[in-house]
Design a protein around this nucleic acid. Structure first.
Lengths: 157, 157
DNA sequence: TTGATCGGAGATCATTATAGTCTCCGATCG
DNA sequence: CGATCGGAGACTATAATGATCTCCGATCAA
């Protein structure tokens, strides 16, 4: 349950790759094109293209046209949250259809619905979780989110 | 994104209803049948039946056959977590296909996958969230989960 | 200035998941 | 016995997803 789509997977992989190239030691600042990512991670080229276009439209990456073109992060990896990435691809976080109900829409269960409020709270908690973790966190092997229990794990490389 | 299925919605509504009847003031201990819930919440009867059967199989509710039959919670509402309910209907929590990968299964991206570990951590956090909230929490209007910010709400009944 | 290389955008198709329906069975109680 | 309940399987329709194809405009370098 609660699976994210392949497209979101691809988005995360691509962004991780772009970030690691852009801020890596080898060729910092280099733009990364779709083909390079598709081959590296075995992602269908044209599908990945769609994903990157969506990320570009949502302002997470910058596109550069023409030969030697490609993509760059639009801002620091620490300023790009997992929530932003997922929402760019899959739309707003919504556990239920009635999460972002507009006027005019209607829910058959609404009249006696007994779960809307608690579910919205759960949804909010999940959103906080996803919005508190950034692409930067995914890069360095940093401790990431801890929801409870301050774990006593060893340090990472 | 991350939407739960209608079946899960129905499960949550049904359990909330059963719990409120069972521990309510009017007719405590009364069994609740499928038809009653379906009519109350405008849920297709036969679909709800499937949902309740799944909940029964997973040990969240007890079924009673025959006339005057129906369902009862199998244990206290405080001992039934949202995670258990959702997993009964939709299977194990898995943000990605590789979350619970068995031997033999394979992921095209696995070789250079750079997001598996961080995603598993996110998944774990979400699971904790869902497993720390119970059906009982959904009943009383209790404070529910707080992921951060120790809220200054009133005490529980 | 021309052509190869890039991203942008739209339509299209196949596959899968979901939502919902239909039918028949066995258990139970009055 | 028979009406009322849950249990279980097959089945259909629709929507979401994953993936592909085609054409366009921008860019840069030869």
């Amino acid at each position: 349950m609660l699976k994210i789509s392949k497209k979101s997977d691809y988005a995360l992989m691509a962004l991780q790759h772009i970030a690691s190239v852009q801020f890596g030691d080898i060729t910092p600042g280099r733009v990364v094109n779709t083909k390079e990512i598709a081959e590296e991670y075995n992602i269908p080229l044209e599908l990945l293209a769609k994903v990157l276009q969506a990320l570009s439209k949502n302002g997470l990456i910058e596109s550069h046209n023409g030969p030697k073109g490609g993509y760059l992060l639009a801002r620091s990896a620490r300023q790009i949250t997992i929530a932003q990435i997922l929402e760019s691809i899959e739309g707003p976080l919504a556990l239920t259809d009635c999460s972002h109900e507009k006027e005019g829409e209607f829910c058959m269960q609404r009249e006696h619905c007994n779960i809307r409020t608690p579910l919205l709270k759960v949804q909010d908690s999940i959103y906080q979780l996803l919005n508190n973790m950034t692409l930067g966190d995914m890069l360095g092997g940093t401790p990431l989110i801890t929801i409870q229990s301050p774990s006593t794990q060893g340090v990472e490389p």
